[in-house]
Nucleic acid binder design. Structure first.
Lengths: 189, 189, 189, 189
DNA sequence: CATGAATGAGTTTTCATTCAT
DNA sequence: TATGAATGAAAACTCATTCAT
């Protein structure tokens, strides 16, 4: 566990937190450095500049989210089981990586995202569209445009995470389970 | 149609557009002035400063949204009819005031929102919680914490608006009707 | 008494007051217009610009001060009587034209004074130097460099005016008379 | 001799010079930075803003002036000796800290002075009033209101400093001594 | 490698001045 | 002639980035 690795992680943690709360332009580098417990100059030993920092984080976590959620998705079970896996995977990811969902959602359409970030975003969307379309072919999911279906389901997740962050609810096992049932009721045929 | 009113409206339109797309800190005043077609100094004849501008818009539109959606809400009809009214009202509002939903959602948790803005936000949330709780007492809506139920439903709306803005879907009458059915399926007992 | 004359006078009065209190750069034209009770544009119908306004006032009052003080200066009396006349003349001028002494003193060395203003300033100084030198030749005044003698005497006047403006003293007949005696004691041989 | 201390001192020197010559509002920060030989942003690393800068300087030098002049004031000598000490102390201060007297006099009544600055000003005035009143009780000084006496004496000092700055006189030992005699003649009973 | 003082380009904001009414 | 809304150049101030230590 070298010092470099630790400092870099401190910076990344602080960046997720501040970018997720105040946004990219609302977060200054000296502020970020202070929260990370490093000097402003140190950030530039690990990231070329502010844009490189957001993009690095966006790509890392967008891919991480995809990976973790897919790992929770049983490939041979029923569609219902798969959805259950995804839903639980999303909340597990959020619980294990606090602030990351906010960060990803906030920076979703930033003008500072580079080609790589946009590509990863587009790919993950494409994969999900295909998944939904597949379930529709099998007459499992309701027959709406996949982007609409996905938007409603994923936004529901986002909304619940936000509601918890704002202190309105507590996302425990029971609530995750209940909400999973309701969202399934929304999207299933 | 005085010049003053027109300039102020131009500024407000440009601010809704740019703040909604790039955020508060991501929008510069000269940029905003250019889009509004006025000189930078002119903005300050109508709004004390940048913060006063966002807050003015936030308050105006948050209240407008509440008013318009409630006006579409039949007070003596069934709960189902009421929900249908609200859902249609939300999309009508979005269609009539493009960009405003994005603006309100983006600035929802800004550190630059003043007390007045936070109060309006809190009030609108309180009213909706009460509405949901009422429907739960009558065993119409599913028995989840009202904030959770509301978060899922409202976020679904937000998600659909975003999906349209990003070009994935077209929010026509048919789709609004279908999504209304699906969201109702999610929240009803 | 045309409207124009009145407005111009209102502007001049406001300018003397504000320039004398906050200085040239510390006074804004809209502010000045408000105190004068006119629109900002109106000032520019009477004065080419802000600099022309100060210079006009500086020249007018510097000359007026010279004239009034000289009119109180008996040409055939004793030097003592002449000084008494000047001293009384200065305070009479200050009483009749409140704020003007502050204005003249404040703007004494402004970079915005034009050639004409500087010439009037220089002339009035030259005349006074000659007067002092004359009294020294007659062995009436103490033998210091005229600028030094003048600086001490005139500054004493300024100091008294300031002290009254700040509320420390009341410049009534008695005090003017007493201070005249003391300043004469300072400068006489 | 750290770089930080030097830069801060450069800024303070430039500020005394420019504020003393052109006034607070007549001096721009970039201009000040250029004279100080630093970047505009550097000023803000040492002073919160322009007002904090003037106030810091005003307080520092007002107190320094008081201290230095009092140190030259023999406590057991005659009143005459005390006055001589003060008068010499004032000119010594002016010679050692060129521009500071102009700065203090110019900013004496600025609207940008904060409570702390006004308090220091008020305190120094109060102390001097008491000193004068004490000398009057002992029938040393002439019986005028202390503020009037003080105004005349201190203004004479200011007038002499200004006259030198404008090139009319040279404040050498001899002239300081002679003016001291004349001012004493003015204020003594 | 890490730092943080220094920088200057860019931001928010002010204000002298203009000009359509 | 008087106005005041509008302007844009210039002011105060911020902050991403650099570089000497």
């Amino acid at each position: 566990m070298s010092t470099k690795a630790t400092k870099r992680e401190d910076i990344e943690r602080a960046a997720i937190e501040l970018f997720g709360q105040r946004g990219f332009h609302g977060t200054s580098m000296p502020e970020l450095a202070k929260v990370a417990g490093v000097g402003p100059g140190t950030i530039y030993r690990h990231f070329q500049n502010k844009e490189a920092l957001v993009n690095s984080l966006y790509q890392k976590w967008k891919m991480q989210l995809g990976t973790e959620v897919y790992m929770n998705l049983p490939m041979q079970g029923s569609w219902r089981a798969r959805f259950k896996g995804m839903w639980r995977g999303l909340f597990a990811f959020n619980a294990n990586n606090p602030g990351v969902i906010d960060f990803l959602d906030f920076h979703h359409h930033g003008t500072y995202l580079d080609e790589q970030s946009k590509m990863i975003e587009a790919q993950s969307v494409t994969v999900l569209f295909a998944l939904v379309a597949g379930a529709q072919v099998e007459e499992i999911l309701v027959d709406l445009p996949p982007p609409a279906l996905l938007a409603m389901a994923y936004s529901s997740f986002i909304g619940l995470v936000r509601a918890e962050r704002e202190g309105y609810i507590q996302l425990d096992e029971a609530l995750i389970s209940l909400t999973e049932e309701r969202v399934w009721a929304m999207i299933r045929r």
